[in-house]
Amino acid sequence: MSRLQVVSGKGGTGKTTVAAALALALATEGKRTLLVEVEGRQGIAQLFETEALPYEERKIAVAPGGGEVYALAIDPELALLDYLQMFYKLGGAGRALKKLGAIDFATTIAPGLRDVLLTGKACEAVRRKDRSGRFAYDYVVMDAPPTGRITRFLNVNDEVAGLAKIGPIHNQAQAVMRVLKSPETAVHLVTLLEEMPVQETADGIAELRAARLPVGRVIVNMVRPEVLDAADLELVRTVERSSVAQALSAAGLGGARRGGNAEKLVDPLLEQAAEYAERYALEQEQRAVLGELGLPLHELPLLAEGMDLAGLYELATELRKQGLS
């Protein structure tokens, strides 16, 4: 199992949720994981219903069986000051740089630098060992930028090598790439059973593969439960309205006679079934497309009551059951 698990996905597919659930699942039974956020959205804090995360690793959840999940929101500016401190012992000069807007400038505009700092920090956590020589974290899970930007984000080497040809940033980029392109890393893509996210997933995988970045699994999120199966849907097309009316009436929903309460329910219920059938067919189509990607495919259920902390544990259990941890 790769120790750096990167989770990406099209916006709106729930990649932060999946990353958090994965961190929980990997922590189960005494392991320690670090969940890393790189886009400054504080999505992890929202999910775990805690206050905004500082730039500091802090424990945010306990996993079943005694494991621990730590979280870190990486702030590129502070990460840069960290590095400057490490390499140049800047002290107060760092603050002066900040005042001038140099830090802002360097982390926001300097191409690739921001990404090197973000991935660099994550890779540092992957490699970090405690005094006894054990890894500080068993796993690091990164809530990464969306699919459209993921290859570029991870492929910092190309970005940076051409621009910063020497110096610590260059070396840093090289070290990061060694981790990212090794089996130590797996990049997972989260999608929905809808056309655009599936298309973007397929494109994203092609890009990752072209950049020789290790693609992990495809995780289909928010899968609706199957209420009617293929046989039911076949019957929906041929069934007599009157026999449905009678079944409804038998179930205690009023009269089946024309104009009776049960009879009046038939059309709207069948219409809802037709909508369901249309969506079902679309979803099957998208499943088939995903099936052709040649990657392990996992499905997570749509939580009826919306996403909350309990739901997160539910998804973590589901991921474990499916062998993701």
């Binding site: 007599e240 026999s243 449905v244 179930a251 369901y276």
Partner: peptide, 28 residues
């Protein structure tokens, strides 16, 4: 009416219509 359009015994048909109707209600 239902039996005419389906294979199997009327009871089978009725059961599958009941099953479908229960599904329609759950969907609802």
């Amino acid at each position: 009416a239902a039996a005419a359009s389906e294979e199997g015994s009327p009871a089978d048909t009725e059961r599958s219509v009941d099953r479908l109707t229960a599904g329609l209600l759950r969907l609802h």
